[in-house]
Write a protein that binds this DNA or RNA. Structure first.
Lengths: 343, 343
DNA sequence: TTGTATGCGTTATCAT
DNA sequence: ATGATAACGCATACAA
């Protein structure tokens, strides 16, 4: 294994000082004579010079790296977010470290610590931890934080929120507008603000229409896993249908769960949407690939990632005022809801 | 923004040398008296000391960072791989940089260069580029490479392959065993070894059974995107069914495409599997969530990620001999294939 | 325009 | 057991 060539090696080969080499190879605006510049560039190329960014970064105190902490990359929603983040990061010559917190606050904190040690100055996080003290204590160390998906209260952290409450209400009202009055809601364990908001949106929409809510909540949520969500969708839909007065429509807190609901219904030989309607939440792409195509509330995942990264870049450039963004839900009307107003 | 405290600051506060501080805080085995050790640890804690790993890494010439280059994190197969990688990386206190090459060789090379500049010593790559010279030239700079999914010929790069050929044959034979004789194959543009192998597995299985192959290939593949695959699945299935002698079973080169096939068939009021059978490839989780659950060839994605990262860690530790791994396909028999042997 | 010298924060070698 | 000092590779203030 050859040892790498440094600017000093090149300086020696070109009979110049390493300062001059640095000026040339770092594209500094500092004036260097044309002939020396060309000579140095030629030698650098011939010797296959590769700069060691650790040296530069140590000197400049900037690692040109940002990080994303999300519950799990397996979740298509988060992989779309990450995809958006990575796209704009690349445009700014930044590199992205991905961290799966697995819904584990301790792991989340461990990651944050490591990232700061690695001199990551920008972080996009969907935080699961209750205790945000660690994160906040790092703000005055030059860490810039954007909270996505899960809000972080307090100063100095920009938010890209999604109006979960409105989304929950929107889905429920859509069902109501289609003539449904018995509308069930199935949800993963309500252990986070986002889930609480969706549920409250549902509850308020039911209440203001004078309807009786029917909620089934999954008991635990240790494993963050698509199949797990699917299975609890099945189980909870079963519970709902076993009630004395079963719903004519079911609203699920995410699309995976909605898939489970549909699956359980079809196992019971109930057709969607003929016999019962289903609405999901997230609007992931596969939703349009199943049968019937799933009506859902779209959360702009990819766009959220792009916006988050743009904001982060602006923050790190100290450009302009800080602000939060609240993304609005959108109804993706597909084929899983039946209009029963005529019945 | 406070300036960060360094070991020198702590040394001053503790009236010791920075060497001693370093010994304590880096958990060196070098002997330091108990009282000094405790004192330094106390002061470090009180002053909220956070080590700057850039300094350490520059000195040690190791960045404790690996990278993964994949076509797109949007693809559930690759997000599972990444999930596996990240899991074992974390266990080794490594951090993972994610790069989406978007099937663009130029972008892939750009990433590789940047990563090497960042002193990343380990790379797991599903390479799309034809020209592997850049990659190989970096091997003797201490870069360790594991090729997944797409083989890279040559020395010094370990492979974690998947037996695509066998997988293609396995799916085809399964269909044959269920009595199908007109079996169509739909595939994305055959522009990579993996896709070629699957197709050849299909062709050989057809040939050795004395059957006529029916292949539909998607013309282009610029955009790597689930919805795009879905749409070409629909289109190609349509072409197949419009033939004078349409198939009784369709095999698709990936699950997304199989979803498209099923969708197009159901649009034509053909039931799967009653009227026509479908087999996918990849075995992604959502395959079991659709109706009917998709029979598919399982590629062990998550396990592949874990193995790749383990191998990489061993390589970087210089532990043991180098070897390649060929993962074997597995038939995931679900509900999208009908047995017509009795008909 | 070029060179000299210093420091970024850390570890490690060599004295003491 | 502890300290002084020299790297690691780079950028830059200052000198020439």
């Amino acid at each position: 294994m050859n040892k790498p060539v440094t600017i000093h090696d090149i300086a020696r080969m070109a009979n110049v000082s390493s300062a001059t080499v640095s000026r040339v190879l770092s594209n500094s605006s500092y004036p260097v004579s044309k002939e020396l510049k060309e000579k140095i560039q030629r030698i650098a190329k011939e010797s296959n010079y590769i700069p060691n960014l650790l040296g530069k970064q140590l000197k400049m105190n900037s690692s040109m790296t940002i990080a994303v902490i999300i519950p799990s990359i397996i979740n298509p929603f988060y992989s779309s977010v990450l995809f958006g983040v990575e796209e704009v990061a690349r445009q700014h010559n930044f590199t992205v470290i991905t961290c799966n917190s697995l819904q584990d606050p301790a792991l989340e904190d461990e990651y944050i610590r490591t990232l700061v040690e690695k001199q990551v100055k920008g972080l996009i996080i969907s935080s699961i931890s209750k205790d945000k003290r660690l994160l906040k204590s790092l703000l005055d160390r030059g860490l810039h934080v954007i909270a996505i998906d899960q809000k972080i209260e307090g100063e100095g952290i920009s938010q890209i929120e999604f109006d979960y409450h409105k989304g929950g209400a929107m889905a429920t009202r859509h069902l109501q507008a289609k003539g449904h009055r018995q509308i069930g809601y199935v949800t993963s364990k309500i252990d986070r603000p986002s889930r609480r908001s969706i549920c409250q949106g549902y509850l308020e929409a039911m209440q203001s229409a004078g309807l009786e809510p029917m909620v089934e909540e999954s008991p635990a949520d240790e494993v963050y896993n698509a199949v797990y969500e699917f299975d609890s969708g099945k189980r909870l839909a079963g519970k709902l249908m076993d009630r004395p007065n079963p719903p004519t429509a079911i609203f699920a807190c995410n699309d995976m769960m909605a898939f489970g609901v549909i699956n359980e219904l079809s196992r019971r030989e109930l057709q969607v949407p003929q016999d019962i309607s289903v609405v999901g939440f997230d609007g992931i792409d596969v939703g349009q690939m199943i049968h019937p195509p799933l009506t859902s509330i779209k959360q702009p995942d990819y766009e959220m990632g792009k916006m988050a990264c743009k904001m982060l870049m602006d923050m790190m450039d100290d450009a302009g005022p800080m602000f939060d963004i609240v993304l609005q839900p959108k109804l993706l009307e597909r084929k899983s809801v039946r209009d029963i107003t005529g019945d």
